[in-house]
């Protein structure tokens, strides 16, 4: 399995430099933005690397070659999950290095600081993202998975708000008791979270992400076992 991760890293040699540049740029551009902007940039760089690796597999139909080697299909699946976190770690290390270099040499370049909080946020977001994407990829292959990904993206950011908005209107606006109940529940959840320490919240999210990812991996393994080339 580690061989497969190493393989992806070898293939990404050139892309790694590109993403380093990207991270530096992101640190500069997003320096003043609050909240998740930096986490999003980390996720973006990691996602870029992941897609790059998948593109390489797809371009030469190399899965045919890989699956003819003495290795288990499950290793191919698990290696993909694992490698994403390696990319994430590389990107984060890149960020930290850039920060240290800037602060030590004292380059007068204002950059954002990545905190533990943001790192956790990025990792959780990445876990959720691949938990949704990989089962689709292992079921339908690269090309169709990219298409489905696109559709899902559009659905989330364009159609879903539209549909929700319309539904709310249909039901007589936010004054409807059903909505008031939902809002109340959310408020309660928030209140409860307020009582928890930061590290506890982080743990909850990490645990949730891990459960989601385990389920996703199970699904991917099952799909890939039956994949035909």
């Amino acid at each position: 399995m580690l061989n497969l991760v190493r393989k992806d890293l070898l293939l990404l040699k050139r892309s790694l430099w590109l993403s380093a540049l990207y991270v530096l740029l992101a640190l500069f551009v997003f320096r003043t933005m609050s909240g998740g902007a930096l986490s999003a940039a980390t996720v973006g760089a990691t996602y870029m690397l992941m897609i790059q690796a998948l593109t390489q597999d797809d371009k030469n139909k190399s899965e045919i070659m890989l699956n003819s080697l003495p290795l288990r299909r499950q290793d191919i699946v698990l290696a993909k999950y694992l490698s994403v976190f390696i990319y994430a770690i590389l990107v984060i290390i890149g960020c930290l290095l850039a920060q240290s270099v800037v602060s030590i040499i004292g380059i007068p370049m204002p950059i954002g600081w990545i905190s533990l909080e943001k790192i956790t946020g990025a990792l959780v977001a990445m876990a959720v993202l691949i938990s949704i994407y990989f089962p689709i990829y292992f079921k339908f292959g690269y090309l169709r998975s990219r298409m489905i990904g696109m559709i899902l993206f559009l659905a989330c950011f364009l159609f879903l708000p539209m549909v929700v908005g319309l539904t709310v209107q249909e039901l007589g606006g936010v004054g409807n008791p059903a909505f008031r109940n939902i809002l109340a529940m959310l408020q309660e959840a928030e209140n409860w979270l307020q009582t928890q320490a930061d590290w506890q919240i982080a743990t909850y999210f990490l645990a949730l992400a891990l459960i989601l990812m385990a389920a996703s991996a199970r699904l991917s393994l099952e799909f890939y076992r039956r994949r035909e080339f």
Partner: peptide
């Protein structure tokens, strides 16, 4: 698979490598 080998009609190796 440890004891056999394959040659395909097309290239399935990574071209960039």
């Amino acid at each position: 698979k440890n004891r056999m080998a394959f040659v395909f009609d097309e290239n399935h190796f990574y071209e960039e490598l």
